[in-house]
Design a protein around this nucleic acid. Structure first.
Length: 922
RNA sequence: GCGGAAGUGGCGUAAUUGGUAGCCGCACCAGACUUAGGAUCUGGCGCCGCGAGGCGUGGGGGUUCGAGUCCCUUCUUCCGCACCA
């Protein structure tokens, strides 16, 4: 009876599907556990061997938890809206729904072949109207909510309206747009419906506003900040420019502090939490107003170093600052305007790349330092960003390097403010020492000075303590076709939600997936697409992150057509216990999901403040490319070791026709017409290829498909080998060469269950001590490894166990049956087959119980002590473990064998660590 | 520039509390077998050395009876952020 993995795997995959083995339901008698994978975008290329890495790990964890008695939710679905399908639709005219459906089916086939324990009855696709109905519904909740700073949570917009009706704006402490009006209750009531709606829009958690956005002309859409990398689009690498447009946004900035605080409560990798902290960018400082000379207006600056205020020798405004035009003197006008023009011409990228060059222009205006009363000139410079803080800074050249360079360049004064400051060559940002040249705070330390200054500015009304966040509100609209329609129509140019009863607002058909001639998004093409036949719908669609910002709740109750998820389901499944996915979503999906989750919680729909308790980032599987070396100008290829003797050009060769870096010459000749009559210079009769680690990609011919591996070695081998490659979090290259070791292991494991004639046979004899020890070692090891997500070390340990049992010729049921259960999370197909042979008719091994570890089987009575001298191991001595250190020392000193290493000397000191080591100092 | 992660045989890696560095596997070498195979089995395999022995976890220094592990310093690679006031 051979190990026929193809038959076995097909058989059990069918069994699982027919018997709904992995379907789970709410069961209040069992503890819940929720294991989630970041759901994939179903691309046309299908899965390569790197994609399932995280899914395999989460699957092992799921199966293990089930064996441990948990009710485990482990669903899968598709993040199916997205740009690639739409770009393809533009090229081919084919509806993106069709290609998406094809790709999804292919993904499903590929996933099924790997033998995952997904509950497919809960499958979701974000592009299904049944699903996006609820994405639209959540959008409506955000539209109908505002953030109350007094209660520190989102509330229904109704509570804001009633505040307006009773007291106007006077008792409202909200997160809102900057240019909100102040009004009394009477004024509010007399405002008129449209004016009221216009005002409310400035408070809603999702709102329409004129703002500067990242516009990508090549993709024909705006992008969120996290979709722009170094001035180029994340997808496609097209240039992105700043443009002022009316756009939907999400008021994520309201949650900045809670998003920051929450990071301390979740078990996530430090780098991800750090990236989110940076993205949120909290800084604690103060706002300070400088009065302008000759004008009524004041310049407000934000500073984190209020203590340096006496070192201010000039102010700098962003060139876009609203006061620039007003305050510029006639003499300086030409220079300032020229500078502004020059800045505008520079792209975002140029501006970022060119950090070294100092540039700026003097406005001719002066402002008064509110603390020192000194007059300081007002400049403009592009190192001050319009979008951060107030768009104006107080320049302290002694303490800030940029200000220092600016002052040197334009010959502005530099004033020392701390006695310990060294400012000959460069700025010194120190907080040490006592203040000098600093009026009020002379002689004080940093802490004293800060206290005194904050008290002073708040008392005089020239400023206040202030916390600033770098995170901006998130743009929530794309001028594209393949996304969720926004459930909004326009009346008198104002947005209104459609009736909840009219959900879902279905994506309409269009004749082309391109913008209209007038530059409107594709949805503007939809013929007769009007709300109640009368009102224009919003023509933008939602961004890619909309559908993924709440999907873990849908899995809890995927078929519910009354609610996005029932209260009962949310109360039982609560949150995701383990979330596995790539780190590329650090500041996108993982931040937006936390944001929506908090909104849903504030509005009373869910219970958890944080959606993902533990997060693990699986590493990337890189490609390992192979190369052949063509001699220049010929069709002759020289083997790797001899290539230095010729002038060659390296060419990528398909890794699937190379074995252990040896090229299959026939397959190579057949691979391309050009190669049909290729000639070779061999070494040792073989053609050896070069190799290099690169990204796995089609163009580098290093893509390995899981389908091919499953076909050749089986899914269990693939699963175990992916884990065997190394720690889950680490990036590592895929090299199919090593896989035979894992395959051989499974065959060796299988052979334990066979007699000499190759028939299935296990004995009911009592196990020996050595056999029990081998078994309990692996029971313990796998338990520990899974708990710390160290899946690679388990695989080695299984190998050790099977090597030991093979050497012991163990075929005993008492050992092998528990071993099948222990292996089943990693290699479920072979485990099912053997479990069925051991226990005919008893059902799936997933319903077995993980065997109990008993430490007594691991106890040894003697130990080979390493005997070291000055820390270097010289020999060993077998001593009973019952002996105490003093007795061990005595035996060591008496041993003639050890005496010869002592060189006749008496050790100065002997250290005996029981059960570990003996060290002698001579 | 700032922040983070990581450097161990030819390769992927292991070493859970400071206690025998290199487990497990690949590749390689030698042998056996013969349905001559990208098969299977046995043995070897960190480096230098015939050997005794010496050296060895990116480099340098330190703490310790003892350091891959802790501390200082330095180099390299990868990732993120990047005029953030």
């Amino acid at each position: 009876m051979e190990y026929k993995f193809r038959e076995i795997e097909q058989k059990w995959q069918k069994y699982w599907s027919d018997n709904h083995t992995y379907k789970v339901d709410i069961d209040v008698n069992k503890p819940k556990y929720y294991v989630l994978d970041m759901f994939p975008y179903p691309s046309g290329a299908g899965l390569h061997v790197g994609h399932p890495l995280g899914y395999i790990a989460s699957d092992i964890f799921t199966r293990f938890k089930r064996l441990k008695g948990f009710n485990v939710l482990h669903p899968m679905g598709y993040d199916a809206f997205g740009l690639p399908a739409e770009q393809y639709a533009i090229q081919t005219g084919q509806h993106p729904a069709i290609t998406t459906d094809q790709n999804t089916k292919r993904y499903r086939e590929q996933l099924d072949r790997i033998g995952f324990a997904f509950d497919w009855s809960r499958e979701i696709r974000t592009c299904d109207a049944d699903y996006y109905k609820w994405t639209q519904w959540i959008f409506m909740q955000l539209f109908n909510a505002w953030y109350n700073n007094d209660t520190n949570k989102a509330e229904s917009i109704d509570t804001l309206i009633s505040k307006f009706e009773t007291n106007g704006t006077s008792n409202v402490n909200a997160v809102c747009d900057e240019e909100v009006r102040s009004f009394t209750a009477a004024e509010w009531k007399s405002m008129g419906e449209d004016a009221q709606q216009k005002e409310l829009l400035k408070y809603r958690l999702t709102y329409l506003s004129e703002s500067v956005v990242n516009w990508c002309a090549a993709l024909g859409t705006v992008l969120a900040n996290d979709e722009v990398i170094g001035g180029f689009s994340e997808r496609g690498g097209h240039p992105v420019e700043q443009k002022k447009m009316k756009q939907w946004s999400m008021r994520i900035s309201a949650y900045a502090e809670r998003l920051l605080q929450g990071l301390d409560t979740i078990d996530w990798p430090d780098p991800i939490r750090e990236m989110q902290r940076n993205w949120i960018g909290k800084s604690v400082g103060a706002l300070l107003r400088f009065k302008l000379e000759k004008f009524e207006d004041k310049i407000e600056v934000f500073t984190t170093r209020l203590d340096t205020v006496y070192g201010v020798t000039f102010l700098v405004l962003a060139p876009e600052h609203e006061l620039v035009a007003q305050i510029t003197t006639p003499e300086q006008k030409a220079e300032v305007e020229a500078y502004i023009t020059k800045t505008k011409q520079k792209s975002e990228r140029d501006r970022m790349a060119d950090v070294k060059t100092v540039s700026g222009a003097f406005t001719g205006a002066y402002a008064i330092n509110p603390l020192s009363g000194e007059q300081v000139p007002v400049w403009i410079a592009d190192y001050v960003l319009a979008g951060y803080g107030t768009g104006a800074v107080m320049a302290v050249p002694s303490g800030d390097e940029r200000d220092f360079r600016f002052a040197k360049h334009f010959n502005l004064p530099i004033v020392q403010i701390l006695d310990s400051q060294v400012i000959e060559e460069t700025a010194d940002p120190t907080k040490e020492g006592k203040y000098v040249n600093s009026g009020l705070i002379n002689g004080m330390s940093y802490d004293e000075a800060m206290k005194a200054l904050v008290a002073k500015i708040e008392a005089e009304g020239t400023g206040k303590a202030k916390v600033n966040y770098r995170m901006r509100d998130a743009i929530f609209a794309r001028q594209r076709y393949w996304g969720e329609p926004v459930p909004v129509y326009f009346k008198n140019d104002l947005p209104h939600l459609i009736d909840e009863a009219d959900l879902p607002l279905v994506l309409p058909e269009v004749d082309k997936y391109l913008p209209t001639e007038s530059g409107e998004p594709p949805l503007a093409r939809a013929a007769g697409w009007k709300y109640k036949g009368e009102f224009e719908y919003e023509h933008s669609t939602m961004p890619g992150w909309a559908g993924s910002s709440w999907y873990w709740y849908r899995y809890m109750d995927a078929k519910n057509d009354q609610e996005f998820s029932s209260k009962e389901a949310a109360a039982y499944w609560k949150d995701v216990d383990l979330y596995i996915g790539g780190s590329e979503h650090a500041t996108g999906h993982l931040l937006y999901s936390r944001f929506w989750n908090k909104v849903l919680k504030d509005l009373g729909y869910v219970n958890e403040e944080e959606p993902f308790k533990k997060l693990i980032n699986q590493g990337m599987i890189q490609g390992r490319s192979n190369f052949v070396y063509r001699i220049l100008g010929t069709n002759k290829f020289v083997s790797y070791g001899l290539r230095k003797d010729y002038e060659t050009h390296p060419l990528h060769v398909d890794v699937n026709i190379v074995y252990n870096d040896v090229l299959d010459l026939d397959k190579f000749k057949n691979s391309l017409p050009d190669y049909a009559d290729a000639e070779f210079i061999l070494e040792d009769g073989k053609y050896i290829c070069g190799h290099e680690v690169e990204k796995m990609s089609k163009s580098k011919y290093n893509v390995v498909s899981p389908d091919d591996i499953v076909e050749q070695y089986g899914a269990d081998t693939l699963r175990m080998y992916e884990m065997f490659l190394g720690p889950l979090e680490q990036s590592k290259p895929w090299n199919t060469n090593g896989i035979s070791g894992v395959y051989n292991f499974l065959r060796k494991f299988w052979n334990l269950f066979l007699d000499e004639k190759g028939n299935f046979s296990v004995s009911d004899e009592a196990p020996t001590k050595a056999e029990l020890k081998a078994l309990h070692k692996i029971i313990q090891k796998v338990e520990e490894d899974v708990a710390r997500f160290s899946f690679n070390t388990s695989v080695s340990s299984y190998m050790i166990c099977v090597n030991e049992l093979t050497a012991l010729k163990c075929n005993k049921r008492a050992i092998l049956e528990p071993l099948v259960v222990v292996l089943s999370p990693y290699a479920p197909h072979i485990a099912e087959e053997l479990w069925a042979l051991l226990n005919p008719g008893k059902g799936s091994v997933i319903n077995a119980t993980y065997p109990e570890f008993k430490a007594e089987y691991l106890v040894e009575d003697a130990f080979d002590y390493p005997i070291s001298i000055n820390g270097k191991v010289k020999t060993k001595l077998n001593v009973s473990l019952a002996l105490e250190p003093a007795d061990v020392e005595k035996l060591v000193l008496e041993s003639a064998d050890i005496a010869k290493y002592l060189d006749g000397k008496t050790p100065k000191k002997v250290i005996v660590v029981k059960g570990r080591i003996v060290n002698m100092v001579i």
